[in-house]
Simulated scan of single mutants.
Amino acid sequence: MSEWSVWGSCSATCGPHGYKTRTRNITRESQCGGQTCSNDLVQTSTCNRECLNGGNVTTTECSCKAGWAGACCETDVKECQANLHNCDVHADCINTFGGFHCICKEGYTGDGITCLNINECNASTTCHTRATCTDNQGSYTCACDDGYTGDGQSCNDTDECSEAQDDCDISATCQNTEGSYTCTCNAGYTGNGTSCQNLNECDSDMNDCDRNADCV
């Protein structure tokens, strides 16, 4: 019999089915009643029977840990793309090798599994001091107060008088103020400025006519 050959290459790089073989040959048959040569000419041995990334090998397959798949547990599962995650609807799912993690989106706070809206209006915002902050899901809006114009982050006083946005009486004078305006009835009229009536000075002794003159 010849010596055993070196072991051949393994039939698999991983998994439960890898094997390798080696052989030997009968160099000369038995003669003159000598002992018959053994038929054991091939030997087989297991090899590379393991699973990757912490998987467990069985007699038939690899039992992969969560986050891994494939015949040898060599493939990372894309939980985020396959919607196999438990991230909150207001969180971003970030895939990692063998797993994933969740991060709450801007405007929300939490561990990613649970995300709660942040009320930015209770903290520092970019709203102008003359604007009102309104909270909404994940963000907020700024709106200039009455009497001011702008985008909420920049607000300027509105001149209601020059822009004809006042409700002063036609016989009143409009005076612009910061964030508002006032109406004052003109001389010869009485009222609250938004409603002015003619004042009869002759009947109310509010004239400076001589006592020997007629007031008209």
Rank of each mutant, 00 (worst) to 15 (best):
C64Q: 03
D40I: 14
C64W: 01
L41N: 10
N48I: 00
C64T: 00
C62G: 03
C47D: 08
C51A: 11
V57F: 00
C47H: 09
C51T: 05
T60N: 12
T44N: 09
C64V: 00
G67Y: 07
C51H: 00
N56P: 00
S63E: 12
T46M: 06
N53W: 08
V42I: 15
W68K: 03
C64K: 01
E50F: 11
Q43Y: 07
A66C: 06
K65F: 04
K65Y: 03
C64G: 03
C64D: 00
T60C: 10
A69C: 13
V42K: 15
E50H: 12
G70R: 00
S45Q: 13
Q43D: 13
N48M: 02
L52Y: 05
Q43N: 13
T59I: 11
D40P: 02
A69M: 11
T46S: 15
S63F: 12
C62F: 06
N53R: 03
W68A: 02
T60V: 07
E61Y: 07
G70F: 00
T46P: 09
A69S: 15
N56M: 03
R49E: 05
G55M: 04
E61N: 12
S63V: 14
A69P: 04
N53M: 04
E50A: 08
W68H: 06
R49P: 03
V57Q: 06
G67K: 07
A69Y: 05
N48E: 06
L52M: 11
T46L: 09
A66M: 15
V42Q: 14
G67L: 12
C62M: 07
T58K: 06
R49C: 04
W68G: 01
G70Q: 02
A66G: 11
T44R: 15
V42L: 09
C47P: 04
S63K: 13
G55I: 00
G54C: 11
T58R: 10
E61D: 12
G55V: 01
C62I: 01
N53K: 10
T60S: 15
E61G: 04
W68M: 05
N56H: 01
T46H: 15
A69W: 04
R49A: 05
W68S: 01
G70I: 01
L52V: 09
R49Y: 04
G67N: 03
N48F: 03
A66W: 08
T59L: 14
R49H: 02
C51P: 14
N56K: 05
E50L: 10
G54V: 15
A69E: 14
T44P: 02
E50Q: 11
V42C: 08
S45Y: 10
L41M: 11
C47Y: 07
V42E: 13
T46E: 14
T60K: 14
L41C: 07
N53A: 06
N53D: 07
C47S: 09
G70K: 00
E50I: 13
C47F: 09
L52K: 12
L41A: 02
N48H: 12
T58V: 05
Q43G: 02
S63D: 12
S45G: 08
K65I: 07
N56T: 10
G54H: 08
V42H: 13
N53I: 01
